[in-house]
Design a binder for these strands. Structure first.
Lengths: 248, 248
DNA sequence: CGGGGTATTGACGGATGTCAACGATGGTGG
DNA sequence: CCACCATCGTTGACATCCGTCAATACCCCG
């Protein structure tokens, strides 16, 4: 099976065939983990770079008061944690959400790649920039949007990301996330997420059913979300159209 | 005058004297801007890299519904926007908060540095990792903390950052931010920030007076904030311990 | 002085959280 | 193949935190 990670990263950044081969080799076959398995925990020493080949994952933080905040959601092809030594310990946990096939690139190996392969360094750097952009958009969403808009916005984001990965029917994509996880990502309670979702369903705008997201009226959803076409759209546009080289 | 940016970045990452000289030269003398001046706006093409030599700044986003969310607060020595062309346009605005002296490194020049100087690339990359860590901690704070803890946490963060820059008396530092700006950063309303601040003052824990933050009981404040010693502490520890000369 | 932005306060309303119970669903082992 | 259990989804009643609105006081700068 083609490696989701490689195909994702090589569409975003021009990588030489050699770099691609090296990266692929560094990944290895990966290893299977059950759902909800912590790959590395807050407080641990930084570990290898994790690459999600199959299955979904997330980053999260447990708050002193007991709650949990999900910081990012990862799909096949996404990778984690470039914490190459700035920090002495992890400031959040990385876990699987669904059963997953995860490859790891050991830290020393990763260090070699960064030292010897400027192309790879740049690729990782750019991917990290995208993460930063998404993180900022989450701050804005959680800080300034009401629950309805907030849910709508996250659904738009996940929909576009998931579809770029594996187009199914129109307005439909895989979304194996529980309402509890969504709540933890949105800074809401599961109960409230449920109410919002329910209203969307009643309004015939979208529904979440057994691991699938079905959007009946995406225009309406994006309008409610105040979803900026320029936000993820542009990012994904370059993936979908396979722009030869967004020259650095 | 020593360049706050250079002293900050070179304390974090080992940079050769040559790299340091090059970076310094690339900055130039900088230019003065009034308070609340947008340096680059959401929607603009990505511009140069901005470096705050003096004065404070912030990143922010205006929401479709009209509100504003501050995404990051910048102090002297901080720099902005490595948006080296992943994105075709800025997804947020960068502005001064106080009157400021800001240097710019033009994009083409920046590109050269990144292509030719692995040490500099690495330095910027690591600084960006720190930004990512702070952004994630903001997500957690806004998403899962009540207003009191939230205000307390931001104050702890700003206090430690500001003190690393220019230690004054114990429990005191410069903080030239209006309650309106704080509210925009915290995802609260100015009215509510005021109430929280007022309670802290009445409790004899901390007060915000004419551009200065005065903390009377930092242990208590950190306890309320659930401030993780490992969070900024560790990051700043490496700065403080290595810092032969306070910046400026 | 005068004026614009900021800080402070109170009264009120509403969005979201909390608590609690029940129903649905899927996985597992007997 | 069924029964059981854990997890998740759904719903209602109620509490509260925070936002909204509005008025007044403050303070720096021209």
């Amino acid at each position: 099976m083609p490696n989701a990670f490689i195909s994702k990263i090589s569409h975003r950044v021009a990588l030489s065939p050699e770099d691609i081969a090296i990266l692929k080799a560094a990944c290895g076959p990966g290893r299977r983990y059950p759902a909800k398995h912590d790959l590395i925990r807050e407080g641990d020493d930084p570990g290898p770079v994790f690459v999600f080949l199959e299955g979904w994952g997330c980053r999260y933080k447990i708050m002193p008061e007991g709650g949990r905040q999900v910081l990012a959601i990862m799909m096949p092809g996404d990778f984690c944690d470039m914490h190459t030594s700035v920090l002495n310990e992890m400031d959040h946990t990385i876990a699987t959400v669904t059963p997953a096939l995860v490859a790891t690139i050991p830290r020393p190996r990763m260090q070699e790649l960064l030292d010897l392969r400027p192309g790879i360094t740049r690729a990782f750097w750019l991917m990290q920039l995208v993460d930063l952009g998404v993180a900022r958009s989450w701050i804005a969403s959680i800080g300034r949007r009401g629950s309805t808009e907030r849910v709508a916005h996250l659904m738009c984001e996940l929909y576009l990301r998931a579809r770029a990965l594996r187009p199914v029917e129109d307005g439909q994509c895989a979304l194996p996330l529980s309402q509890i996880l969504l709540a933890d990502a949105l800074g809401l309670t599961p109960v409230h997420v449920n109410r919002v979702l329910r209203r969307f369903k009643a309004a015939g705008i979208m529904a979440l059913r057994q691991g699938d997201l079905v959007i009946s009226d995406i225009a309406q959803l994006m309008r409610i979300a105040g979803f900026d076409d320029a936000y993820l759209q542009r990012r994904l546009a370059s993936e979908e159209s396979q722009m030869p080289t967004p020259a650095l």
